[in-house]
Amino acid sequence: MLNGTVESIAKNTLLYSFVLSQPFALYAGAYPIFENKTLLEAEELEYGDHGEAVRILQYKLNELSYYDDKIDGELGVLTEHAIKKFQRDHNMTITGQANKETIYALIEVEIEGHLKRLENLSGSVYPGLHSEDVKIVQESLQYFGYYEGEIDGMYGPLTKKAIEIAEEKHDIDFQDEAPQQSFNTMYESERQQAAAATQTSTKQSSIKQVQVQGGNSGIIQTAYAYVGTPYVWGGTSPSGFDCSGFLQFVYNTEGISIPRTVTDIWNFGSPVGSPSVGDVVFFETYKPGPSHAGIYLGDGKFIHAGLDGVEVSNMYTSYWEQRYLGAKRIGE
């Protein structure tokens, strides 16, 4: 299930209890982050299933022009057909079942649509401003459950409050950064959390079975010891890591000095054609070029500091595979 951002929102906004108490028709599409949470918790929806998660699935498919029948919460023939069309168009295995990969893909397409709108932002927003830019900002804040007012394009008290909450939760500053950059950071958080929910949980015992050669054994064992450590933006210690802070800490513990940022680690390492256990694997996430990295464990798995904390992920899920840039070896 989604953690991090979603759970913190649920604890800090009245919207969560409001959404749960209202008929679906009243809030459908207004608070996508809560809809995403419901879908990802469902894990898999198939023919014959019914309920709130199916209604949300039908709504999203309808918004993307794959489903044009009644949104009734019943996964019947037409809903199954819509799922198959979506899977076909996105090069997925065509099953008619909405598994986690399919659900995440729906969320990804939805996010891409929101980001496309952000390209229309012309400048900064500030209290008192009444403009189309403010309306776009309000819609993006509403996506995360921070904004609960009318989408009216007026930067008033509710918009100001929503921005302040978003800034605190995501460590961003709408005044110092362009709004588009700030929202890219927020949407990337949502992307990574949704991606994490599609991955099969990896137990500690499975990591211990990885055969490690030579000097890399200490690196893997050290990295493994911190599974579950929370994600902290800028974190470099066992109280909390970001992705590059985690890598630097692990390598420093083993007596190897590496740079602090993902980009510098990318430039520091020696390129390899395919990763071996202990190599660093890199991904392009919220900006062009290497922006996320982890330590390769073998069998397509890597350990990294994701937004749900230090965890093991599979490189071959749809999210990570399409963002993989390459691997580098440290110490050669």
Rank of each mutant, 00 (worst) to 15 (best):
D171G: 05
E177F: 06
E74R: 15
N216P: 00
F18E: 11
I33C: 01
K116Q: 13
L75R: 12
I83A: 13
L64F: 13
S276V: 10
G273W: 07
M92F: 09
E284T: 14
I265W: 04
I220H: 02
E139V: 06
W233M: 02
I111S: 03
A194D: 02
K100W: 05
G234T: 04
G156C: 07
I83S: 13
G326D: 10
Q221R: 15
V280C: 06
H90D: 07
K328C: 12
I111G: 00
Q87A: 14
A82N: 14
K11C: 12
W266G: 08
E41R: 12
K208V: 02
K84Q: 15
Q22V: 10
A53H: 02
M154K: 13
K328W: 10
I220F: 02
H130F: 04
D279V: 12
T159D: 09
L75Q: 15
I83Y: 13
S239R: 13
P290D: 02
H292K: 07
Y27I: 08
W320P: 02
Y251V: 03
G145P: 05
F174H: 10
L141D: 04
A197R: 05
T202N: 00
Q138E: 15
P238Q: 11
E43N: 14
V137F: 06
P32E: 00
K160M: 09
K208R: 08
